[in-house]
Computed example of a mutant assay.
Amino acid sequence: MISDAELPAWLRLLATPGLGRSSLRRLLAAFGSPDAVFDAEPAALRQFIDAAQAAALAKPPDGFDALLERTGRWLASGSAQSPRALLSLADPEYPSPLLQTADPPLLLYLQGRADLLATPSLAIVGSRRPTPQGIDNAREIGAELGRHGLTIVSGLALGIDGAAHLGALDGGAGSIAVVGTGLDIVYPTRHRALAGRLAVEGLLVSEFPLGTPPLSANFPQRNRIIAGISRGTLVVEAAVRSGSLITARLAAEAGREVFAIPGSIRSPQASGCHALIKQGAKLVESAQDVLDELAFPSPPRAADAAVAEQAPEGPLIEALGHDPVTLDALLARTGLGIEALSAALLELELAGKVARLPGQLFQRVGYG
């Protein structure tokens, strides 16, 4: 982790205007550290960057003192339950999978369990406007993969991202949220409680300086980190044109596995997943499909028993499946009479295990 003595040089280097990540990586590869970059002669710098960029390094950028003070205060405000730190590209604790990507961030702001960066992980991403079934799938699969020892990575967005984080945390696993703002800003604000929980039980990650607002251009950038940290990316629901498919593409370019859950051919939220499957993504119907593809070991017997206890029981629950179903289809699947079936559905509905949808459709809810 970056020490107090190293902090000013790192912040100043990354805040220097006109220097992109590729230029900064060239400088660090050539000179070894930010301090060495600032000590270098202009002629030596111009072997790697142009004259205007070299001139920009000659003095601290506008607002640098305020940035340094704000960052120092933020770091000092961490706690034993929710520590804060900065991790540089040169640090031995920098996550190896991310280091092997084409565009690793030079600096990561961390809050929470930094040890999760060293654990095997899977990204789960998807629509901000998912179906109820999409929410259930993300949460259930996140929980089950977590019980098998996979850390779940996502982007703290509404919809699938939030459900995946909650599933991982509820299942007792760690979860990493890679955000598109500074870590002193929670976006979306509706996830303030989730972010607070992740800061203690999981990990919040950003490459953006403190005070960075939720700019639209930053979210595709953070997606490369989500894909880069993880052994694979699972898309639960997504339209054909969505940030989730950007994450999947970045995962494939980094040589990682891509998974997708199929859905109804009439659902726009399934179209992106179907496109990925056509392109070679692994079709996923359960968490076990992911575990098998990653050759991940099975959990201990105690965990298996816990999973079994949560599995839905009863012929009607089994007959409901996971997609909306008509009353006629349930009559055919169960062999029950209309009165007995209606009574059983009402009981499950009152228990919160079944939802009654428009058009006399029924759908299983949550874990029930």
Rank of each mutant, 00 (worst) to 15 (best):
M1I: 09
M1G: 14
I2A: 09
A9S: 15
L11T: 02
R12K: 15
A15P: 07
L27Y: 08
L28D: 07
F31I: 02
S33P: 12
A36V: 00
I49C: 10
A54Y: 05
P60Y: 11
P61Y: 07
E69Y: 02
G78T: 05
G78L: 04
A90G: 13
L99G: 15
R113Y: 13
T119S: 15
I124D: 10
G126M: 09
R129C: 11
P130I: 02
P132M: 03
I135P: 00
G142P: 09
E144T: 14
L145W: 07
V153A: 09
G167Q: 04
D170A: 14
S175I: 00
L194I: 04
L198Y: 03
G202D: 04
G202M: 00
S206N: 11
F208H: 08
F208S: 04
G211C: 05
P213N: 03
S216V: 15
S216P: 13
R222Y: 04
N223R: 07
V236R: 03
V240S: 14
G255C: 11
K278L: 12
L283N: 05
L283D: 05
P297W: 01
Q310T: 11
A311L: 15
A311I: 02
A311H: 05
G314T: 12
P324Q: 05
V325A: 07
T326Q: 12
L330A: 10
E339L: 14
L346R: 09
L350I: 13
A351C: 02
K353V: 06
A355V: 09
R356C: 08
L357H: 05
G359K: 06
G359S: 05
Q360F: 11
Q363K: 06
Q363Y: 02
R364D: 06
G366Q: 03
G366Y: 00
G368I: 08
